[in-house]
């Protein structure tokens, strides 16, 4: 792949990643944020494919396809199903504050660029230059987790955070060894499924999925 095209493709995929994360914060509808997750998962798969093509690794392409299928397909589908089961699909998250969140996202993205300096400064490749996007995704995922109040939107936050970590992994070192990568994917998958079961149970017990209903344990 020629160097120009490579750096443009990296810029395109990481651009989509960051854009979808910021839009998540703007988005108040639960279904809307799940759709954004699909775009983000596909962009992550694309990014992995670009780094794999650059290193001419055949296994990398397989990983890219698995990631796109899982993070852009299966996981959002599972979330959408949970949203339907628990009947929040037409609802808006009460914790969402679009204007404030957008302001904070600007701040967090700047922070991400500042703290990633040691990483960016260690090389000149276009991949390393894009590392702050991964860090920004981690911080924005955190923000979603902290501010949202329904179970499904917290799950969305967790997945954005996880996508951020995967982005950093692929940009800094072309991904972890394949055995570890598979283990990590399986873990994330099962965590989401576990939380899905808990969400459905929550719906049965409290009649809703608002986490504010769960406030009995404290000191």
């Amino acid at each position: 792949m020629n160097a120009d095209l490579h750096s443009q493709l990296i810029a395109l995929t990481t651009g989509v990643l960051l854009l979808t994360a910021v839009l998540q914060l703007w988005q108040r509808s639960v279904v809307g944020s799940i759709r954004l997750l699909v775009a983000q998962g596909l962009a992550l798969g694309g990014l992995v494919a670009v780094t794999a093509l650059e290193a001419s690794e055949a296994t990398g392409i397989v990983v890219a396809i698995v990631i796109a299928a899982l993070k852009g397909g299966f996981l959002p589908w599972a979330l959408a199903r949970t949203a339907r089961l628990t009947r929040v699909h037409d609802g808006l998250d009460p914790g969402a504050r679009p204007a404030l969140s957008l302001l904070l996202s600007v701040l967090l993205t700047t922070v991400a660029y500042v703290v990633s300096q040691p990483l960016v400064g260690s090389g000149t490749s276009p991949a390393l230059k894009a590392v702050p996007v991964g860090v920004a995704l981690v911080l924005l995922g955190f923000l979603i987790l902290l501010t949202r109040r329904t179970a499904v939107s917290q799950l969305v936050g967790f997945l954005v955070l996880d996508n951020g970590i995967a982005t950093v992994a692929f940009l800094t070192s072309g991904g972890l060894p394949i055995t570890i990568e598979i283990g990590v994917l399986v873990d994330v998958l099962v965590v989401v499924l576990v939380l899905r079961v808990l969400t459905v149970r929550m719906r049965h017990l409290t009649g809703g999925t608002a986490l504010t209903e769960l406030r009995e344990l404290h000191d």
Binding site: L195, L198, M202, L211, L214
Partner: peptide, 11 residues
């Protein structure tokens, strides 16, 4: 409810 809350927080 309490064990559900504990499990959610824990996970």
């Amino acid at each position: 409810r309490q064990s559900l809350e504990a499990a959610w927080k824990y996970v």
